[in-house]
Each structure stands twice: as C-alpha cells, then as structure tokens.
Simulated scan of single mutants.
Amino acid sequence: MEIISGFVTFAAELTNGDIPEWVKIAPRGRVTARDGRVFDVSPEALVDRFKSEGISIPVDLNHATILKAGRGEESPAYGWIEELEARPNGLYGRVKWLARGRAILAERSHPFLSPAFGATDEKGRTVWLHSVGLVATPALVMPALASAQTHKGAPTNMTNSKLAEALGLSPDVSESDIFAAVADLKAKASSTSNVISSASEAMEVLSAEVGKARRSRIEARVDQAIKAGTATPALRDFCITLADLDEGMFEQFCAKMGTPFAYLSTPAITNEQEARFLEQRPKETSVTMSTDAQRLAAQLGIDVKSIL
C-alpha cells in the first residue's frame, strides 16, 4: 500500500470556520514525495475504479485503516468520500465529514490530506484509491492556496479568485472556466507569436532588398564621381567603402576634392579640332619612308604599302 501525504492543506479554507466539502486529493501526473518516491497519478483511472466498486472511501487519522486495522486496533473514519471527480489539475473528492472529522479540522492539529494508493496499472499509474488520511506532517509540500473547495464548482481559494479577476472573469467562476480562459489566452498568444514570426521574416526579406538597393545607389554615385573627375577608377573600392559607412561623409569628400582628375576623361583633341584638321588636310598627300625605316618595317613583318 503506497501512502503519500501532504497533497492538500486546509489552512486557507478554515479561516472562516468552514469545513470544505470538495477537497483536492492529489495532483495530476508524475509527482515526487519529500522522501523521493515518485507517483504517476491518473485521476480518470481512480474515478473509474471508484465508480465500478460503488464503495465510499474512508478518511481516517494518520492512515489508521492501513496501519492499525490490520492489527485489529480501532481505526474509525473521520469522514467518507462519496464522490470522486477528475479535474484538469488533479483528483478531487466530495467528503461527508463526521463530527470527529469536523472537530479535528477545527483544531488544526492534522491539516493535511494524505492519499493511500492500493494498486497501479501496467504503465505504473495509480488506479485505486484505498483511503485518505488526515496527517500533521506532509510528504509533499504544497501551498495552502491549492487546497480545497467549499462547494463544487467554486474557485478553490483566494488565489483562484484573483486569477479569475486578472482574466476578466467573475470571482466565483468554476475552476474549469479559469482553465478554459487560460487556454484561450495561450492560443491567442501562440497566434500572436506566429504573426510576429511572419512579420520578422518579412522584415528580413525587406531589409535585404533595401540593402541591395542602397548598394546599387552607392555604386552609381561613386561611378558618377569618377566620371566627373573627383576620383580615379583605382579609388573606386575605397569610395564605395566610405559611402557605405557614411554617405554624408562621402559627399563631403567629393566636395573637398573637387574634380582634379577630370582631365583623364577629356580627349586631347576635341571633335571640333579633329573635324577642322580633316577639312584642312590636302586631298592627296604623298608620304615617303626612308630606306632605314623600310628595312626596319620589313624585319618586323609590316607591309609598308598597307599603312601609307
């Protein structure tokens, strides 16, 4: 028989002298006790076993139904769990408290619940809730805010009320409504995340396109400066690097340099001068070469007649 105590504390629920009817017996899924034992709680499996047997589950003191009953000692019930319910955050039970149970809770001497699991399935999940004990020392520490419900359908505690308020819900909504609101908020957050991701990808593409356009503009501006005579072709890479770092600085460079290399792109003979020369040239011009020049041309394989 496996016993794990301290899943639930009633301290927060007893401030007004009320005895909770619905209590949280165990959380859902894998839990580790303070002594290192690991339990895999399946609320649905526990509820199915309870319904199939149709027997109320005793709430005893310090697991007396396990530790004392086997020795023939007295092990009275302090309450009876008459209904089990699987909820998103664990297993809950509706307890019919006996007078001695109400008295022990009022004294606060044993404020924690300790479920005793009697069997597990082939996957290691708990499938049988044997009993629940009121204990003073918990094996698993859980805050009081996760304790119990005073009636079915109400928030478990003050924290749930605050959570409901933060979600824009009525303070007295059920726990399932709170979980639904959280799930909806999570879905919206996921959708927003997808939108942000898509926008980020679009910005990356746009940034790349803007970068290409800027590079083309800078190269065109540098080529213009070279053509104007501000720089020579040998300085093209330098000018592109300067403009890429700071286009304003490159413009200042061009302004200070002026056009000292403009002559490189200016022909020595203008079109007008060439035209005038051709007009003034005699119609028939006789060109002769010296004997030495002709001999040199022959050695170089040049046809003198083709160039005269």
Rank of each mutant, 00 (worst) to 15 (best):
A225H: 06
A220Y: 13
T232H: 11
S216Q: 13
L264N: 01
V222G: 11
G229K: 05
R217F: 15
F261D: 04
C254R: 04
K256G: 01
C239P: 10
M249K: 13
T232N: 01
R215S: 13
L242E: 11
A231E: 09
S265L: 00
T241M: 06
Y263V: 06
Q252C: 08
E251G: 05
A262L: 05
D244H: 07
M249I: 04
Q224K: 05
P233K: 02
L264M: 12
A228S: 13
D237W: 07
G229S: 03
G258W: 01
D246H: 01
S216T: 12
A234T: 13
A243C: 07
M249T: 15
I226E: 14
D223W: 04
E247S: 12
A255T: 05
A255G: 10
T230I: 12
F261I: 07
S265C: 04
T232F: 07
E219L: 10
A228C: 00
A220Q: 10
E247K: 01
L264E: 04
I240H: 01
T232G: 14
A231F: 15
F250H: 04
Q252L: 14
L264R: 15
P260M: 05
E251A: 09
M249A: 15
K256C: 00
R217D: 02
R215D: 10
A262F: 06
A234G: 08
F261R: 00
I226W: 05
L235Y: 06
E251T: 04
A243S: 09
Q252K: 12
T230A: 06
L245Q: 15
K256L: 07
M249V: 15
A231H: 11
P260Y: 07
Q224W: 13
D223A: 11
K227M: 10
I218K: 02
T232W: 13
R221H: 11
R215Y: 09
P233Q: 00
Q224N: 12
A220T: 14
L242Q: 08
G258S: 02
A228M: 06
C254Y: 02
I226A: 09
D237F: 08
R236C: 01
R221P: 04
A243I: 12
F238P: 02
A220E: 14
R236Y: 09
E219N: 12
R217V: 08
F253D: 07
G258T: 03
R221K: 15
A228Y: 00
R236E: 09
F261G: 10
F261Y: 15
R215H: 12
S265I: 10
S216V: 12
F238V: 10
Q252P: 10
T232R: 11
G248C: 02
F238H: 05
A234E: 15
A228I: 03
